[in-house]
Simulated assay, not measured.
Amino acid sequence: MSMTISADLCTACGDCEPVCPTHAIVPRKGIYFIKSEVCTECEGAFDMPQCMSVCTSDSIAPLEA
């Protein structure tokens, strides 16, 4: 699985980018984007996705299949 960022809710604060252990979060067109092929949802490293724990706009959620 992977996390995703809602473009409608993202404030482009950038808090999520530096906490990603796999460097899956990148800026794109004024907001941040999570590369699904790189995102591990922090499994094995943290109890919860680090991007989600720092997001103040609640724009990060698990990617739905």
Rank of each mutant, 00 (worst) to 15 (best):
V26C: 07
P62W: 05
F33N: 11
H23P: 00
A61E: 14
Y32M: 01
S2C: 04
S2E: 03
M48D: 13
P62E: 09
A7Q: 14
T11P: 00
C20D: 02
R28P: 03
I25V: 10
P21R: 03
E37H: 11
V26A: 10
S2G: 04
H23R: 11
E43V: 14
A7T: 13
Y32R: 05
A61F: 12
E41I: 10
G44Q: 03
Q50G: 08
T56A: 15
M52N: 06
C20Q: 04
P27R: 06
G14I: 01
M1W: 13
C10I: 07
E37W: 14
C10L: 08
A12H: 04
A7N: 11
R28D: 09
F33G: 01
P49G: 03
A65R: 14
M48I: 11
K35T: 11
C51M: 07
D47E: 15
E41Y: 07
K35A: 14
M1Q: 14
L9Q: 14
G30F: 02
G14N: 01
S59D: 07
C39D: 10
F46Q: 08
I5Y: 00
V54Q: 00
I31W: 06
S36M: 08
V19Y: 09
G14L: 02
G14E: 01
A65F: 09
C39M: 06
T11C: 10
A12K: 00
Y32T: 05
K29C: 04
G30C: 05
T11S: 13
C20W: 03
A45W: 06
S59G: 08
A7H: 11
L63I: 05
E64M: 13
E64P: 07
A45T: 10
C13M: 06
V38G: 02
V54P: 06
Q50R: 15
I5M: 02
M52H: 10
S57E: 09
S36A: 13
M48L: 13
E64A: 13
T4A: 11
P62K: 08
K35P: 06
C10S: 06
D58W: 08
A45M: 12
I34K: 04
K29S: 14
P62D: 07
S6C: 08
P21E: 08
S53P: 00
R28E: 14
A12M: 05
C16N: 03
F46S: 10
I25R: 05
D58M: 09
K35H: 12
S57R: 00
R28T: 09
V38C: 02
T56C: 11
I25S: 02
C42T: 05
D58F: 10
I60E: 04
F46Y: 12
M48R: 13
S6K: 11
